[in-house]
């Protein structure tokens, strides 16, 4: 069972893991998009991002609308920034919306997931590509790398970004994977309950492109749990085959404090448990639950490493006869 799962995942990794460099030919990509009659919306959820939003809009508009007509609209969906985020984004030509103004009869909840959800209503295209606004080293690859697998592969529906983090390593094989919350919380949870989903190198990355027919069928936690919840729902409905992931090289963003990561983990755990409950999985541990899955990379090839971690249990010492004899304790 374990061998089968491993082979399967390694072949999935080969066929569903991309590098943005594979899609350098934007002219070809635009032609294929037009041939298939697809439309693409780029959605950037924001809350007080005036420092980075301007650059994102300039680069995306110039490269992916003016130069290559890949993206049909750029929608900034804002949670109510108190800085100049909306003004800056609009000045460089983005369509800017206040989250609260979209579907007002549904009310307004503050959270990134809220903006992503409302984007499905506001944006018009077949594919929505979500990109966070806090990326310091923004580049067209953050969009092209995610939409290209959807344009070329009709059977894929949900493409996640992953980044090769600049971990210190000397040469050859290096450890790879996500941030602290991914490695400490999400990957252990997935290893236990959804081993297939451990094939996603960075399940929490905020950049992904998804087809509308998938997006409008899944619920959206409004806070930190949105990515985790999506993965479980899409997986339960379509299986791992619907996913792809693209290496976008480095992503430079602000670092979060351990306290913030704690809040994030709490939100993720809430969403995770609610999904487990929804699928009746809370008390069902799959057979391979003692296999923990991590990643290592060699060049541009990613491999899962599995480790059997068995947390065996010993009974209370007082139940051991030799112990009771040694300390003169009578059997209870």
């Amino acid at each position: 069972m374990e061998d089968w799962a491993m082979t399967d995942l390694s072949s999935w990794l080969d066929k569903h893991t991309f590098h943005h460099g594979e899609f350098w030919d934007l002219l070809k990509l635009v032609k294929e998009k037009e041939r298939k009659g697809l439309t693409i919306s780029l959605c950037i959820p924001t809350l007080n991002e005036e420092k980075t939003i301007g650059k994102e809009i300039v680069i995306f508009k110039s490269e992916l609308m003016d130069r290559y007509p890949l993206v049909d609209e750029i929608a900034v969906i804002d949670s109510g920034s108190t800085d100049k985020t909306r003004e800056v984004a609009a000045s460089f030509g983005a369509d800017v919306y206040l989250s609260a103004d979209i579907l007002p009869e549904q009310g307004f909840k503050r959270g990134k997931g809220e903006n992503l959800w409302k984007a499905i209503y506001q944006c018009k295209s077949d594919i929505i590509c979500y990109v966070d606004a806090d990326i310091k080293n923004i580049h067209p690859r953050f969009v092209t790398g995610l939409v290209a697998p959807l344009i070329y592969n009709d059977h894929m529906h949900y493409i996640k970004a992953f980044y090769d983090r600049p971990l210190a390593f000397s040469q050859g094989i290096r450890p790879s994977g996500g941030g602290r919350v991914t490695e400490i919380l999400v990957r252990p949870l997935f290893s236990l309950f959804f081993p297939d989903l451990t094939a996603l190198i960075q399940p929490l990355s905020g950049e992904y492109a998804v087809r509308r027919q998938v997006l409008h069928e899944i619920p959206f936690p409004i806070g930190y749990g949105v990515e985790t919840s999506h993965l479980i729902d899409v997986y339960m409905k379509y299986g791992l085959a619907a996913f792809g992931q693209t290496d976008l090289d480095q992503r430079v963003h602000r670092n979060q404090s351990t306290l913030d990561l704690g809040k994030m983990s709490f939100g993720i755990l809430q969403s995770f448990l609610s999904r487990m409950e929804a699928y009746g999985l809370v008390d069902k541990l799959p057979a391979t639950s003692n296999i923990f899955r991590q990643f290592q990379a060699e060049g541009n090839r990613y491999q899962q490493t599995t480790r059997e971690i068995i947390e065996e249990e010993r009974p209370p010492m007082i139940t051991i006869p030799a112990y009771r004899e040694r300390f003169g304790i009578a059997e209870q």
Binding site: K55, I57, V58, K61, S62, E63, R67, F92
Partner: peptide, 15 residues
Amino acid sequence: GLRELVLANAIMLGE
């Protein structure tokens, strides 16, 4: 009409 195109070139060259 070419504002973002020129600026994007400047930004990318700048980085």
